[in-house]
């Protein structure tokens, strides 16, 4: 695929808009919110990230990554017009059809907004299917917030409630959002659990502290969704890396409900 456009989101974080080189592939390619792909730079290897753009927006896909290892380092050095390899889509999906007629509560931390952005835009593009949509998003500092333009757009939209927060100490003098960790802010915002689906994405530590808050707010295990981000290589349930209990995160996930997670051994 060709890198059509590169956006700098935050320090070391970039978004690539990718376009299929072959129009036939573009035509054939279909995916759903929640799925991921294997992105590769030849000679360096493959790396797994979710598809960050919505399936309702055709003709391209987007991915957002932080420069961290060998492959993401090589990806970060690419320029517009260069080529990357893509395999996918893999994994299961957010059951957005089942969510019809409900309120949606998105909770994301840091670089975990990208996997959620896909489903956020997907549901926003089908806005009439859902009732209230709330997004709570936190990052370490103002600088680390990704998709700054889109955050602005969501903030301005009357049909979305957006709460942004940064960790204490990460604020700038003109910061107007919340200050505090995501679970604390969630407790403060305290959205109603009635008829609501909560979708949580973030680092393991954030997820761990968010679940109890949600439970306190009255969310049941079936109404809490999250994605697991285990290390993967093959993407189709062979290489054994993302095996948690009887599940393979790459096949049976990455989307799990809290109910499913509780049945799994604590190895994620």
């Amino acid at each position: 695929m060709e890198v059509e456009k590169i956006t700098e989101e935050a320090p070391e974080v970039k978004t690539f808009r990718l376009k299929f080189k072959n129009p036939e592939d573009a035509e054939k390619f279909e995916f759903k919110a929640g799925q991921f792909g294997e992105y590769s730079v030849m000679g360096e290897g493959e790396s797994t990230f979710c598809i960050a753009s919505a399936p309702t927006r055709k003709g391209y896909i987007e991915c957002t990554f932080r420069k961290a290892g060998r492959v993401t380092g090589a990806l970060a050095n690419l320029e517009e017009g260069e080529t990357i390899g893509f395999r996918g889509p893999y994994g299961n999906v957010f059951p957005i059809d089942e969510w019809k007629g409900k309120n949606l509560l998105y909770i994301a931390g840091g670089i975990a907004l990208p996997p959620m952005r896909c489903v956020i835009w997907n549901t926003l593009d089908l806005r009439e299917n859902y009732k209230d949509i709330t997004i709570i998003y936190g990052a370490r500092s103002v600088e680390d917030l990704v998709y700054k333009n889109e955050l602005k757009e969501w903030e301005e939209r009357p049909d979305v409630k957006l709460v942004t927060t940064v960790d204490p100490g990460g604020q700038t003098p003109d910061w107007k959002g919340e200050i505090g960790f995501v679970p604390t802010v969630l407790e403060k915002v305290a959205p109603s659990s009635k008829d609501t689906i909560a979708i949580v994405c973030g680092p393991p530590i954030m997820i761990k502290y968010t679940f109890p808050v949600l439970e306190k707010l009255g969310f049941t295990d079936e109404t809490i969704y999250t994605t697991l981000e285990n290390r993967m290589k093959c993407g189709f349930g062979k290489c054994g890396r993302c095996n948690v209990g009887k599940y393979f995160v790459c096949k049976d996930g990455p989307v799990f409900t809290l109910k499913q997670l509780k049945e799994l051994p604590d190895e994620y």
Binding site: S40, M42, G43, E44, G45, E46, K233, C234, K238, C239, G240, R241
Partner: peptide, 17 residues
């Protein structure tokens, strides 16, 4: 046992996965 890893090996401009 079938766990595996996927790695690239290159020599100049050519390589293999």
């Amino acid at each position: 046992c079938a766990c595996f890893d996927i790695q690239d090996e290159t020599k100049g401009k050519n390589g293999k996965r």
